[in-house]
Write a protein that binds this DNA or RNA. Structure first.
Lengths: 229, 229
DNA sequence: AAAAGTCTGTTGCATAAGTTACCAAATGGC
DNA sequence: GCCATTTGGTAACTTATGCAACAGACTTTT
């Protein structure tokens, strides 16, 4: 019954280092729920007491406020998990909307079955816990990074940090950004015109040069100066 | 040798649901390093590949930028752990300074010993992993909350959210804040005068009343209006 | 009780960033 | 090749917030 999904689960970080046979055993043991969302289906996810993994399609998490304004919070794609943090932190959960743009299949694991002290201490169960630990830690480190960015006082500092980070990653002073201005502005939590304005200022000061997505860092020290508050 | 610290470890979330005897077994198995920091000792923590737990005293984590400005990032107290996120996420670590204001004892566990596939799958080892998972998930949920606050566009929204959160928690429209204005301003990532100014505005609008640490919510809808963007 | 220190509110001023709008350059469909 | 759409830069204007400085209320020390 579950076997159909093993080839997909196999590639999920949740089942890293776990063989096909073991995955089947785990599924037999954890008895996950299986849920299918129709194309365009919008549902309220107010039960966060379980760990989800998207098997097929993608699931969009949407926040809706009292006025009915909707904000896209997250997109979970195939093989990715969601709900780990709320589940294991045991903190209050914010009910959210989920939207399936395309048909979407999801498997849900009950928390207490994962965490519960089932006395048969199977080694693959332990591996799964380690995988979960890595997944949650990784998400936490992403949040950490986001907190760092959001906490910066000036737009100049945000931009400089971002460019230095990209530079370090790319290994070259010239690179092509993989995100649009709008996305970058959203990530830095500023408005797009403000971002463009400040980028232009930095260009006028001879710190960087750019044309659309391609950026060239001219004066590294200029960037560093903005970063070291 | 390790036994001395068992009464302290016992109360740490890392060893929740684990008996004294089992703790000793775990220590025997994981062979943690033991380190003592002198009063006032300042060291560079550039080796984040291990999980720390403070046994005695407290350890301050300090960020230092190129210009030498120092910012207090975190204070880890007795029985609390640190370094889990960086350790298990396997992400690049930011070297930080650690400062022991008082004499401070710390135990370090090597990551690979916790995560490594030692074939003896002891049940308490599994419990420890679950505890770790909960700790990291909880820290992630705190980060989540912080991201939410930092991402808000207006100070009014930040204050309103904070007051509504406190109201829900306290169960009364009148309560005493347990933090100073300065600390609240820092948490909301605004300047203290700006915070005071906006609080006063809200008072003038009849939404709240306050005197120093004591706050009274008068118009819940006024708060909600600011929250629902 | 006086003095010193801390916490908080208030004000005026400077400024960074949001907003809106518009245009140009690229991209993609037909 | 042409039109529609997306993406990005710019400018004028408004506004929220930071900053610096001061003053009053409370707290602690002596």
């Amino acid at each position: 019954m579950y076997n159909k999904w093993v080839p997909i689960l196999q590639h999920s970080p949740l089942f890293a280092e776990i063989s096909d046979q073991e995955i089947i055993k785990i599924l037999d043991c954890l008895k996950p729920l299986y849920k299918h969302y129709q194309k365009g289906e919008l549902s309220i996810n107010n039960d966060f007491n379980r760990l989800g993994i998207v098997l097929k399609g993608e699931l969009r998490f949407i926040k809706e406020d009292a006025k009915g304004n909707r904000t896209l919070v997250n997109i979970i794609k195939e093989e990715e998990t969601f709900g780990e943090i709320e589940t294991f932190a045991g903190t209050g959960l914010k009910p959210m909307l989920t939207l399936a743009e395309e048909p979407c299949s999801v498997m849900y694991f009950q928390t207490d079955k994962i965490i519960g002290h089932c006395k048969k201490v199977c080694s693959f169960h332990k591996t799964m816990l380690i995988n979960l630990l890595k997944i949650v830690a990784f998400k936490a480190s992403l949040l950490n990074r986001q907190v760092d960015y959001l906490g910066m006082k000036s737009l100049r500092e945000k931009i400089s940090t971002f460019l230095l980070e990209t530079y370090k990653q790319e290994g070259s002073k010239t690179f092509i950004l993989q995100i649009t201005r709008y996305e970058l502005a959203e990530f830095l939590n500023v408005s797009r015109p403000s971002l463009s304005r400040e980028l232009s200022n930095m260009r006028d000061e001879g710190i960087i040069d750019f044309y659309r997505a391609s950026i060239r860092i001219i004066d590294i020290d200029g960037l560093l100066k903005a970063v070291s508050r």
